[in-house]
Design a protein around this nucleic acid. Sequence first.
DNA 1: CATGAATGAGTCTTCATTCAT
DNA 2: CATGAATGAAGACTCATTCAT
Lengths: 213, 213, 213, 213
Amino acid sequence: MSSRPPTPVPPGPEDGRASLARAERRSQILEAAKQVFSEAGYHEASINAIIEKAGIARGTFYLYFQSKATVFDALLDSAMRELRARFTRIELDDPAAAPPQVQLRDGLVRLLDYVLGDRLLATILLTGARAPEAEASARLGAFFDEAHALIKQALVLGQSIQLVRPCNAEIAAAALLGTVRGMIEYVVTTDTPPPVEEVVNELIAVALRGVLA
Amino acid sequence: MSSRPPTPVPPGPEDGRASLARAERRSQILEAAKQVFSEAGYHEASINAIIEKAGIARGTFYLYFQSKATVFDALLDSAMRELRARFTRIELDDPAAAPPQVQLRDGLVRLLDYVLGDRLLATILLTGARAPEAEASARLGAFFDEAHALIKQALVLGQSIQLVRPCNAEIAAAALLGTVRGMIEYVVTTDTPPPVEEVVNELIAVALRGVLA
Amino acid sequence: MSSRPPTPVPPGPEDGRASLARAERRSQILEAAKQVFSEAGYHEASINAIIEKAGIARGTFYLYFQSKATVFDALLDSAMRELRARFTRIELDDPAAAPPQVQLRDGLVRLLDYVLGDRLLATILLTGARAPEAEASARLGAFFDEAHALIKQALVLGQSIQLVRPCNAEIAAAALLGTVRGMIEYVVTTDTPPPVEEVVNELIAVALRGVLA
Amino acid sequence: MSSRPPTPVPPGPEDGRASLARAERRSQILEAAKQVFSEAGYHEASINAIIEKAGIARGTFYLYFQSKATVFDALLDSAMRELRARFTRIELDDPAAAPPQVQLRDGLVRLLDYVLGDRLLATILLTGARAPEAEASARLGAFFDEAHALIKQALVLGQSIQLVRPCNAEIAAAALLGTVRGMIEYVVTTDTPPPVEEVVNELIAVALRGVLA
DNA sequence: CATGAATGAGTCTTCATTCAT
DNA sequence: CATGAATGAAGACTCATTCAT
């Protein structure tokens, strides 16, 4: 029975936490959400867990994000942005640019550097595909498709200048994308991964020359 | 092989009479669950959807499986068993065995054949990591660790007979595991994938010789 | 933190209440909802209050109705159906029919009889307009518009046979609709209302001849 | 007149200086609240909508009103006051007064004039019964009871001088109150209502002489 | 006086699981 | 063995209210 007005008992903050600037509070929540999502995955993660970790009240969360899916989107977008920024298309025509192999190597180093610097975010990115409510989840699929297309394009180009051996570029691109993802997963899940330089060298060696002697 | 829970024998008369029917019902449920889990993922999948697809009553489900997590476990285990059966350790010493490259090729063909023959189960396997309640999910991690170890071991062995170039086997194994997973994901998600032979050829070529001319 | 599976502790019914036939349980819920809605109005009413009054569990409610708005719709529709069934268009041309005044009187008697027989439902009907989520709420508006049109039509017809004095039928119909609603509200809110016959006589007298001597 | 709560004088310096500004702010809020409440009804209305429309900050609202219910009360009281002021007891004994019919007509004209001049407030009054938390909501019931008593009294008086025909004054009063409410609802909800004079004429004609020729 | 960030009780709704028939 | 009605813990989200600045 709800005829009685709900005895409004909204207390003020019980500890002296001060009001944060909007952007600060927002990233505080993002940080908490990042941890929770990367530990528990989208579904297992609860708003409860997020606000507890952030040390804020329920309502405060919804002051900054419309829904659980929205925070997840923000994180996923952030991760994709970071990744995109670090790995740019390789420039062949520009004479001022570094040689292709160096560009490739640098891109991969930046990529793994970022991944190691923010393992949590990277974890979300690797597993974020399963979040149907989050609309960024669909963008993630597009993101990997894009990566596949990029690699394929590079292979075709390489073939045209006889740098790359004849092969089915579509399939090979899928294989190489897998190689990179395997690498990322490896450094993210290994407690004390080898130096980035070494990992990248190995990655490139495998991709370019395989493992045969 | 970790201590597998004793394959939850659901209660009921053990007179062995209805055993066949029992097994049939069980696989009927498993089949329905496979479809639902592979379409929706662990969390999005509902018991409702499973029993509807199986055409059984709610209670009947719990006569054969203790919980949602239990069916999922059964499916995951089944997939892992199938995979394990298809890809055996490469035999070097047995003079009666086929040459290593052929063994490798055959193993991969069997692997991809299976994957294409049961895409649903393969999908679950690829995405099944995110089901913290399902204890088989942990075994999945172990499964991939095992695969990594297998590859690493093969590399080390290959190096000892100068077949494989010197490299950090740990890292290279991670890269190659990724390559295979990428390949699997590719054939599973592509509507009309190329013939298995071609995919395997490409995969082996990339893994052994890279993409360079 | 929700990493732990929620320790499934769903007990069976703690009292021996037996499963009711679907229709029975449904009307049991409708009855409880009727009381709650009529006491508290749509918004003040809570699912909690309804299931408490019905003595059922939360989930049971949703086994029979999709939402709070849905039960409300069912009740509103039921009330409108009852009302419509009791007050039919007055038949002038049928020589076998009773004289118009008698038809009018009978209709009103049936109306008030129903209203007194189910005050709760009548209350919901009188106040149900404020429930934007309930789609039947819109139908309620249409219902009263229909009543207005019916009265207006009757007035125009009466004017054509010189039974009704010249007047603005639109306005007069609004006035008469108000008269009826006032009557209904009166009998519904009065603890021991006068006999229906008397109320109807008075209503008709006022509507037809006014209060002047 | 029930014990009205002492018109919640919001806290703040009582120096009388800013009193004017204070009153202005107050009515600015009331105006916004009037719009919101009349559009959305008590429950659907949100403090958010009110402060947005008023262009003030959240806290400011609570500087002038203790709660949502309080503003609603203020509006309801205001509407009742306006109505009361416009419809005074009909004077029979005063020889200087206009004849009773004229007094009645004038009162009704003033009533409808006001209603049309402030439809929003009138809407709130007509639908304000459903706001259990607002204690003025109870006063609204008393208000209509009062109106009923007034009409009944007039009927009894009219009967004593043989102006009104013999009837059950209690019931007839309920009918007539309904007639007036129907009228008010009609002019309030009709986009371009007929001139007040015409509506009042029709209302009086129906009330005094009915609809028969 | 004004502000608006923060609060948290309360609401609706879902769904895995049980058990009387 | 099969059934499906019933259960209730848990989750996402809203919004009136407060109070430090």
